[in-house]
Design a protein around this nucleic acid. Sequence first.
DNA 1: TGTACATCAGTGAACGCGCGTTCACTGATGTAC
DNA 2: TGTACATCAGTGAACGCGCGTTCACTGATGTAC
Lengths: 212, 212
Amino acid sequence: MVQFVMLQAPPRKDTRERLLEAAEAAVLAKGFAATSIDELIAAVGITKSGFFYHFKDKADLAKAMMLRYLEQDKALLDSLFDRADELNEDPLHGFLVGLKMFAEMMANLPANYPGCLAASFAYQDTLFNREVCALNAEGMLAWRRRFRERFERIAERYPPRIPADLDTLADTAYTLAEGGLILNRVLKDPTILPRQILQFRDFVRLLFAPAG
Amino acid sequence: MVQFVMLQAPPRKDTRERLLEAAEAAVLAKGFAATSIDELIAAVGITKSGFFYHFKDKADLAKAMMLRYLEQDKALLDSLFDRADELNEDPLHGFLVGLKMFAEMMANLPANYPGCLAASFAYQDTLFNREVCALNAEGMLAWRRRFRERFERIAERYPPRIPADLDTLADTAYTLAEGGLILNRVLKDPTILPRQILQFRDFVRLLFAPAG
DNA sequence: TGTACATCAGTGAACGCGCGTTCACTGATGTAC
DNA sequence: TGTACATCAGTGAACGCGCGTTCACTGATGTAC
């Protein structure tokens, strides 16, 4: 009896979340403009009016996608740094551990259409309003702040071997991630991005580790 | 009289080329799917049927855009290396000069929607057929081959200070360019990409130049 | 030098399909009294 | 415990607009003889 009731009203996973999931996959594969509401509702199994119950229009979907992306992005950043910090007291060693973990993460991306919503939105930015573009920029600045803070602590203890611009150094992680994802995808080789990150790690070590 | 005749039949710049120019600008701003044939013909001043005289369909336009991009890309790569080679006999110094020129080029990009068609197409690749995607990959491999060849010559004369994967090193230029363009655009700061390239230049020098 | 034909670079009108959006409505669940 | 109402999570039908594509046609220029 209980079983029967549950079959009638299945414990439906959050429809809105499933719409956002389907939208992200579709946008990463073909872009926002080519992603139709019809295909999203087909993937989730509701009607078009159901979609407009969750999002007031397509621009609202874009904003929700960006917010969801930023949330996941922040969680990734947190897990990267917090765990690296727990393991190490020395800022340089902790950071090198974090970069290694980052490379490992990037080596285990979904095989099909790995990618980053920030890049996809960036290359279609006239489709989005100022708010969504500003959110995207804010996400990038969060990476810069986080990395810069680490580099400041490292540089304090280990003076760099050559002059280094800490903002540029901080941006490199995001830059390599975005560029590497593009190469990964076009060349269909998932090892490119992790290798770029490990090479950056070599550079950081070469730059800060005491000579000899 | 001559003037009058010329006004009647102006020395029309190649219409096809102007269509491709308009298409590239539009695609870099909002993506391929959102770029309509109507807006291209409006920009160029012909009718829709005129467009279909030049391209058999929209997929044909995509292919022509990619071929045009690859041609320009190759020219850029040539000018970078050939001129750097002329100036220097030493492979390392020549390469460092080339990277500096590359950074300067990237500092003087068009202000509006700087970007790379390769990245735009990569993030919408299900819109394109196998041929266009393969062309894109070939363009990236051309960069890898070019840079790798240089690094081989450099490593021959200057053994690297730490072990280095020459393919990864070779891919870094393209990776930084693609990633840097995205940061440039989202953060509206055209100095980000050139600074990434100059930092890579520092790394190369640190890696190969004799210590001391 | 004059005529016939071919090619180039388009025009103009029409097409059908898919898209985002709206609107009135509904059945199940939750809450107040 | 029963009734009235509100909210949640949608349904179903219709809309108008813009899109890519097709087709028959054209006026200017180039080429053969």
